[in-house]
């Protein structure tokens, strides 16, 4: 197992280098990619553009720029400096990460609890009214874009523009350390909106997976042995949940890289918005840093998922 984890980590590092290279190339071939021209105002004189390129180090050959960047990232964990504010990308990310963590982890708890709960009930009461209603709602939630759902929630529940002014609206987010209660209430709507689609997917997947599992021979055997239905269901759930773990790991990993839409609608200053703003202004170091962070989260999440598999399913053993 240890060897497996080490091997996966090494592959993860290799993958990060590849992500670095792809982002670098993509950014450079994108039409808006010369930040020197953008920085030089609307009537940029060639002399000024060249000076800015020199200051930003953009005048060096691309390979040299890339090599320097890799060295800084992997040897010094230095992600460079924002072209716009000259602030270190590492500190920008550190500033934004708590908001994204708060949003993602809270929503993840919500969609796991709601999704699995509804899925289990639906699977155990197939074709009942509750099952039909739950599956109907889940279809609506899967179809509803986060952005639209966020606007609806704000128009209905936000304390400033809502019809029922019961929850803090857009732009109300504060850090957990400055005001825990305000932090909590400001995230209720974003959590629900971010979790709703995933919860619906999980509910449907869990229903299908558990329904199938509950028809397996070993479940019938367990019942025949006289096990309490609650214990039978527990065995069933443990087997049925495996496919969802992969999905959960990937989804959390991706969201930790930034939930752009929800962060935008609710004006939460997280990684997603940082990346979006950086792309808009061709702020390459920030884009690269946030993409790298997102890739890292996905890779780590994958490794965690694989380890979790082994724990949940004794049949799985890694070499």
């Amino acid at each position: 197992m240890t060897r497996y984890i080490i091997r996966r980590l090494l592959w993860g590092v290799a993958l990060l280098v590849i992500v670095c290279a792809v982002t670098f190339v993509l950014f450079r071939v994108l039409p808006t990619g010369n930040p020197a021209i953008l920085r030089a105002g609307r009537d940029p004189q060639p002399k000024l553009v060249k000076e800015i390129e020199r200051v930003l180090g953009l005048n060096k050959p691309l390979l040299v720029q890339f090599w320097n960047y890799l060295k800084e990232v992997f040897l010094h964990f230095n992600l460079g400096y924002s072209y716009a504010t000259s602030q270190s990308v590492r500190s920008l990310i550190a500033e934004r990460l708590p908001a994204t963590l708060s949003l993602t982890l809270g929503a993840a708890v919500l969609w796991i609890v709601a999704g699995l709960g509804v899925g289990i009930i639906s699977a155990l009461r197939r074709h009942s009214l509750a099952d039909r209603v739950a599956m109907g709602i889940s279809l609506v939630l899967i179809s509803a874009p986060e952005f639209w759902l966020g606007l609806i929630f704000l128009y209905v529940f936000a304390s400033d523009i809502g019809q029922f002014k019961i929850l803090p609206g857009a732009g109300s987010y504060v850090g957990i350390t400055s005001d825990p209660w305000k932090w909590f209430t400001s995230l209720i709507m974003p959590w629900i909106v971010l979790a709703s689609g995933s919860a619906a997917v999980y509910a449907r997947l869990m229903r299908a997976s558990l329904s199938e599992t509950m028809r397996e021979d070993y479940i019938r055997t367990a019942r025949a042995k006289g096990l309490a239905e609650r214990q039978v269901v527990r065995h069933g759930v443990r087997a049925a949940i495996n496919p969802l773990i992969t999905l959960f790991g990937l989804e959390v990993g991706v969201l930790l890289g930034g939930a752009v839409l929800v962060e935008t609608v609710f004006n939460i200053p997280g990684i997603g918005r940082l990346n979006y703003q950086a792309i808009q202004s061709s702020n390459f170091p920030v884009t690269q840093g946030t993409v790298l962070l997102a890739a890292m989260f996905v890779i780590v999440a994958n490794i965690v998922v694989d380890i979790a598999y082994a724990y949940l399913d004794p049949r799985v053993r890694y070499q």
């Binding site: 606007l151 704000l154 128009y155 400033d160 523009i161 609206g169 857009a170 732009g171 935008t264 609608v265 609710f266 004006n267 200053p269 918005r273």
Partner: peptide, 17 residues
Amino acid sequence: IKIGGTKTIIGRQVLEG
């Protein structure tokens, strides 16, 4: 000055705020 959000929401927040 608060930066971020969406103009659709900001517009409503201002007109009703």
